[in-house]
């Protein structure tokens, strides 16, 4: 792998780390399989891009993008807890609704940021090479988000959320409205995912309604790879594992795309197949390790 391919994968791993944190929050902490993310990633991208297009400061545009993501997640949570729709189905409903909403927001299926200033310009202005700017900025975002999430899981509210995912009957008996916890948790998760989408769009120079396809699979793959690398442990360790998993996942993808066997090489459209293989490998690795040890 070339140095540039490596930096590129690192950058991707870090920016998508935000999304992976969101997926970790729903899947692992709340035990709520949430597919809203495939729609809330482009939602964040669309909101941020349109705001920038309208002349808003690129950093400031992250705020409405994040809030929009929170609302999308909250809708899924409300569909599930108030209207009693199965969680998986509730999230799929929000996801497909978001497809239409995202096109409404942009006025068309995509929105280019060509010639607009983005969050990356603030760093390149300092003389940082553009190849490094993304990596540094996204590292700052993702590490801060991971630290904030670790702090949150230690608060009274965060602890109640952990217990909601672990033992809802027990925490209800201790006076917590688990429905509210789910709405809040799924909302926070999608806020992170939308923030990720906004940064990705600014990095790519465009938002596209289809940019979210496969987000959930990539997120899950990253969470599982992280768990395989760091093993089980305290929540803080697992949150760090999720970010590392995200980077490892993007590196693995870059490696696979670089493989050449004579005439044959992978194309980006093979990504989903490769991801499926990576998830299978990551899921079976612990068992293989145990077998080898015997």
């Amino acid at each position: 792998m070339s140095f540039y391919a490596f930096i590129g994968a690192l950058e991707q791993g870090l920016v998508y780390g935000l999304m992976v944190l969101g997926v970790y929050l729903t899947f692992r902490i709340l035990d709520f399989p949430d597919l809203t993310v495939d729609g809330s990633l482009p939602l964040g991208a669309a909101v941020s891009s349109v705001c920038i297009g309208a002349g808003m400061d690129p950093y400031l545009s992250l705020v409405p993008a994040t809030l929009a993501g929170f609302c999308a997640g909250a809708v899924t949570g409300l569909l599930n807890t108030r209207l009693k729709i199965l969680h998986l189905l509730a999230s799929i409903l929000t996801m497909i609704a978001l497809y239409s909403i995202n096109i409404r927001i942009m006025g068309r299926p995509n929105f280019t940021l060509l010639g607009k200033s983005t969050v990356l310009d603030s760093l390149t202005a300092f003389g940082l090479p553009s190849s490094m700017a993304g990596t540094c900025l996204f590292a700052a975002f993702t590490v801060s988000a991971a630290l904030a999430l670790i702090w949150f899981t230690r608060t009274e509210l965060g602890q109640a959320m952990l217990a909601t995912g672990d033992n809802p009957r027990m925490i209800t008996a201790l006076g917590v409205n688990t429905g509210n916890m789910i709405v809040l948790g799924v909302g926070l998760s999608n806020a992170l995912v939308a923030l990720c989408g906004a940064l990705v769009a600014q990095n790519q120079g465009a938002a596209d309604v289809n940019m979210g396809v496969g987000t959930i699979v990539a997120g899950l793959a990253s969470v599982i790879i992280g768990e395989t690398l760091l093993g089980q442990g305290r929540i803080s360790r697992m949150i760090i594992a999720a970010v590392l998993g995200s980077v490892a996942y993007r590196l693995a993808i870059a490696l696979a795309l670089g493989v050449k066997l004579g005439e044959f090489s992978f194309s980006p459209s093979d990504l989903n197949l490769i991801t499926a293989f990576i998830v299978v490998a990551a899921l079976t690795a612990p068992r293989l390790k145990r077998k080898m040890a015997r």
Binding site: E156, Q159, M170
Partner: peptide, 23 residues
């Protein structure tokens, strides 16, 4: 009790039964 939480975390959860939970 919640299996994935520690003894003190479980007790702290019970210690706030019926009280608001904040940050």
């Amino acid at each position: 009790s919640a299996a994935s939480l520690t003894i003190e975390e479980n007790m702290a959860l019970a210690d706030r039964r019926g009280k608001p939970r904040g940050l």
